[in-house]
Simulated scan of single mutants.
Amino acid sequence: MPEALNAALALDGLVWVLATTILAGVVYGFAGFGSALIFMPLATIWLEPAFAIAAFSLSAIVSLFTVVPRAWGVAEKSATFTLIGAAFLGAPFGIYLLRVLDVDWVRIAVATTVLVTLAALMAGWRYATRPGVATRIGVGAATGVLGGLTGLMGPIVILFNLGAGSRAEVMRANTMVFLTTISILVLPQMAFQGLLSLEALWLGVVMMPAYGIGTRIGQALFDPDREVMYRRVAYGIIGLAGVMGLPIWQ
């Protein structure tokens, strides 16, 4: 067995990290967002932020086979890939900040982003203007910077897509395709800046079945007629994760 895999399996809190992965997958499967909002604040209780980002990004490959096929036929591809391209270009700056900032500051940034996003969602905040290409590029770039630093690629894009004027089903599909794709594309950028370890990659491989099981369960639970209930459940879990991820508890 490779030494890096042994190290990943010997991590303190591995059981809790896998449980968090399943929970994040379930919420992502039925709500269409929220996986990183749940995983990152909780996983960084046991893992260094860069380690957690890398492992979770690799585990997101599972979504290519579980949630993306259904979303692909509904998503607005041109608009979504504009966001992906801009986020890809913005991510290196966020990764640089992840590399140079103190770990506790990164954990605070993760938890704060989660809680602010939750407050905006619950308050019904929306971007109210029909977006053009320039707006999508700006939103994508800002998402890349925030995601590179915190591993949270969703907050800005979720709020943006909610107010972009698309049907709920299309918004959900756009978000799923974006989050899955950009999570995978950030991995070579982390490797280029020296933040992608073999142990993190092996942990991502170990997490894949857990994440796949979670997303499948979430998809099986999804019923369009219960969308409001799903959002409320997701909000409650995200809020608890954000509070628990604050460094004051560690």
Rank of each mutant, 00 (worst) to 15 (best):
G163F: 07
P41A: 10
A120H: 02
G204H: 06
V177D: 01
W125D: 09
V106Q: 13
L240Y: 02
L162K: 12
R126D: 01
V206R: 05
M171P: 09
F56T: 01
M244D: 00
A71K: 06
V74C: 02
L115H: 02
L89H: 01
T215W: 01
L64W: 04
W125Y: 14
L14C: 10
M1K: 13
L18V: 12
A19W: 03
L185Q: 06
G124L: 00
R130Y: 05
G236H: 10
T215R: 00
R232K: 13
V106W: 11
T175G: 07
L149N: 02
A52I: 09
L58R: 02
W105R: 14
T21N: 10
T82E: 05
M176N: 03
T112R: 09
L23R: 04
A241H: 01
A86F: 03
D223V: 00
V133N: 11
D12L: 02
V233E: 09
E169A: 06
V27R: 13
I156C: 08
P209D: 10
A87C: 11
G140Y: 00
L98D: 09
A91I: 02
L152A: 06
L203Q: 05
F65V: 08
D225M: 06
F51E: 10
A210S: 15
T112C: 10
Q219C: 03
A109M: 11
L121G: 00
I238M: 11
G34A: 13
P131F: 12
V68L: 08
